[in-house]
Amino acid sequence: MKINLTKQSGIYTLTSEQILPLSLDKAWKFFTLPTNLDKITPKEMDFRITNNPPNKTYKGQIITYKIGVLPFIKSNWITEITHLEDHQFFVDEQRFGPYAMWHHEHHFEEAADGKVKMTDIVNFKMPFGILGDFLAGKLVRDKVKFIFESRFKILEKTFAS
Rank of each mutant, 00 (worst) to 15 (best):
M1G: 14
M1Y: 03
K2F: 06
Q8Y: 06
I11N: 12
I19E: 13
L22M: 11
D25T: 11
K26A: 14
A27L: 04
P34W: 08
T35F: 06
L37V: 14
L37I: 15
D38P: 03
K39F: 01
K39G: 00
T41C: 08
P42F: 02
K43M: 12
E44D: 14
R48K: 15
R48E: 11
N51L: 09
P54L: 11
T57M: 12
Q61E: 11
Q61L: 14
Q61H: 03
I63S: 08
T64P: 00
I67Y: 02
L70P: 00
P71A: 15
P71D: 14
K74P: 01
W77Q: 07
E80S: 12
D86S: 06
H87D: 09
F90L: 03
F90I: 01
V91Y: 03
Q94S: 01
A100P: 05
A100I: 03
E105I: 12
E105Q: 12
H107T: 13
F108D: 10
E110A: 13
A112P: 02
V116W: 09
T119M: 09
D120I: 04
D120N: 11
K125E: 13
M126Y: 01
F128Y: 12
L131V: 15
G132C: 10
L135W: 02
G137Y: 04
K138F: 02
K138M: 03
D142K: 15
K143H: 12
S150H: 02
L155V: 02
E156Y: 01
F159H: 03
